[in-house]
Amino acid sequence: MRAADVPYEKVTVKNFPKGPDSLAPGHRACQGCGEVLALRLLLKALGTEFIAVSATGCMEVCTGPYPQSAWRMPWIHVAFENAAAVASGVDEATQILSKKGRGYDRRIPVIAVAGDGGTADIGLQALSGALERHHKNFVYVCLDNEAYMNTGIQRSSETPFGAATTTSPTGSRSKGQYTWKKNMPAIAAAHNVPYVATANPAFQFDLMSKIRRAAAIEGPAYIHVYAPCPTGWRMKPELAIESGRLAVSTRIFPLYEIIDGCYEINRKVADPKPIADYFKIQGRFRHLKEDDVAYITERVNADYERLVELSEKFPVKAAPQA
């Protein structure tokens, strides 16, 4: 079956999953953490019949201080750079044990969760290996808060151009991060995996539907999630959702899917809002001047238009009629 045709139940206002969250309260995430919100929604969409694998990072530290755990499904954390490799082992083990009649009597999705550092920097090799090996029940979620927040806001390859962090500070010779954000969804898609998507907790039904789709499709899937971090972004704690909406409406973080190499933009933005609106609620961009914002706007629009071209040239086609 084509990945685009694999059935899955979308999350809507009407069928929003009831019952307790799959991620228990009592976790130690910061006030207003958009990352733990994304995680809570992603896990809630799946229930508890899957195995979760965490990389070291904010989410791991705040959800698993001995003797407590916020995870209501089987969960394992091993180290920082290897969530994809650990998940590979879990996935292959559940499959072979199922074949040998020793448990796991149905398909068990394995959901690996890591931050942007654990994905795009130190974890990239393990992720590449796992995507290439094509593990059947493997879903990888990158919760991208655009810096090493757990160690105190150091820049990563996912830190956006111009953002100030503790290792990309502003100064007389620096305007903050000097490189453009690494395009992880494109890197994931280059591994010929059936499903790649971007998501954002401000668009909660879309986010939750995408993890369900990723888990339903056989073969590795990659979801890159916008994870607003009030602490690291120097933002008021109540603004995580607002920043999420602005990230989409300014084209900074487009929502799209790449299914078997074909593109679909889920929220088309014909008339983008000024990027300055997105920047002004975050202290990390405070130092940027008008010409900096103009330069960023130009590049953001170029990236977006390239995505539109891809979606027109390689659209996700509707299922062929029987």
Partner: peptide
Amino acid sequence: ESEHSAMSSCIGSSAA
């Protein structure tokens, strides 16, 4: 793709 991932996968597999 590496020994680091070999042992990581082994830990995941054994834990499963």
